[in-house]
């Protein structure tokens, strides 16, 4: 994934139609590059036909399968056919399930999107709160209690956090289902597992941005007006710290929407992450290609949306930066 988030805060960035068109052009180019690399890399990974035939199949059986999948054509021919179909929205048929790859994705996407949004909401709630509190209470007990929790959340890998949560809440307390999708409650454990990772990143960025803004003169002005801490945070600091926090949150969202592979496997979550694992293992080229294409498209769209939001948050960005 090649999309790099711009770090410019006050650089010229007018949201004109021409600017947006330019960004979309860049995005299409990036998608083309990603898809091309994935297409050829997949074909270096081995022969899918060997995995499709039953045990004890002859060389002739394998050749027949290869022929049916079009894998005997020249690489160049396969590539141009793929690109031609892709432009028309046809990403090929799954080798394994013999259904359009786009159908498989459409089936899985809602589950992944649910999980991603739930995880993002949780991690924003926790991350922004912890980041703000630790910045305001720098050097006090609140910071000493909260920072280790944040660090632990980030240091623990998803397979460990996930299993721990299952052990406590499903096996021990029997409050929540351990695996699969069975109503909104089953969303809880996997989204907490995912949020543990993102929340730490969001908390650290929030804390850094808050500390930077707290040292600004306008904070003293607000206090000289008689503003209390709550007003200071909600009316002054929130908007001025939003850009870095939003940037990290968008990055996390894009990652989550691409499918949280480990977490989905642990919780047998029927989303894109699991589909990715299954498809890679089966060398189901069309499905893997479709997933990569979708993930990169999400990345690019989220980044573009973030860039445009900068101008809404801080009008100096929209005006092209600089002072009057």
């Amino acid at each position: 994934m090649t999309a790099v988030l711009p770090r410019r805060r006050l650089a010229a960035l007018p949201a004109t139609p021409r600017y947006i068109a330019g960004r979309i052009g860049q995005a299409l180019l990036a998608l083309f590059g990603v898809v091309t690399i994935v297409f050829f890399a997949l074909r270096l990974s081995g022969d899918p036909a060997r995995l499709l035939v039953p045990e004890g199949a002859t060389a002739a059986d394998i050749a027949r399968v290869r022929d049916r999948l079009g894998l005997n054509d020249s690489l160049w021919h396969q590539y141009t056919t793929f690109l031609g179909d892709a432009v028309h929205g046809n990403l090929g048929y799954s080798y394994v399930q013999n259904r359009p790859a786009t159908d498989l994705l459409a089936e899985r996407l809602p589950y992944t999107a649910n999980l991603a949004v739930a995880a993002l909401v949780l991690s924003l709630l926790f991350g922004v709160t912890v980041g703000t509190v630790t910045a305001l209470k720098r050097g006090r007990w609140q910071e000493r209690v909260l920072m280790p929790i944040v660090l632990a959340g980030q240091a623990m890998p998803a397979f460990w956090t996930g299993l721990l949560l299952v052990l406590v809440f499903s096996v021990g307390l029997r409050w929540l289902p351990s695996t699969g999708y069975d109503g909104p409650l089953s969303l809880l454990l996997p989204s907490v597992t995912l949020a543990a990772l993102s929340a730490a990143a969001i908390a650290r960025v929030t804390r850094g941005a808050m500390l930077e803004q707290l040292a600004q003169d306008y904070v003293r002005t607000a206090r000289a007006k008689g503003a209390g801490t709550w007003r200071l945070v909600t009316r002054h600091l929130a908007r001025n710290t939003a850009i870095p926090v939003l940037t990290v949150a968008a990055l996390e969202l894009a990652n989550l929407l691409g499918g949280a592979v480990v977490t989905e496997v642990i919780f047998a979550w029927p989303g894109l992450g699991q589909l990715t694992v299954q498809s890679v293992a089966a060398r189901d080229f069309p499905v893997v290609q479709a997933i990569v294409l979708l993930a990169s498209a999400v990345y690019v769209v989220v980044n573009l949306a973030t860039d445009l939001l900068y101008g809404v948050i801080d009008r100096r960005v929209a005006a092209g930066g600089g002072t009057a």
Binding site: D217, Y218, R220, A224, H236, R316
Partner: peptide, 24 residues
């Protein structure tokens, strides 16, 4: 102090650019 600041006593600072909230 919060009831005093802004109501009983007001303050003008040196640098009006940095003393005003840039996004409001």
């Amino acid at each position: 102090l919060r009831r005093i600041r802004g109501a009983r006593a007001g303050m003008v600072f040196q640098d009006p650019m940095s003393s005003l909230n840039p996004t409001t």
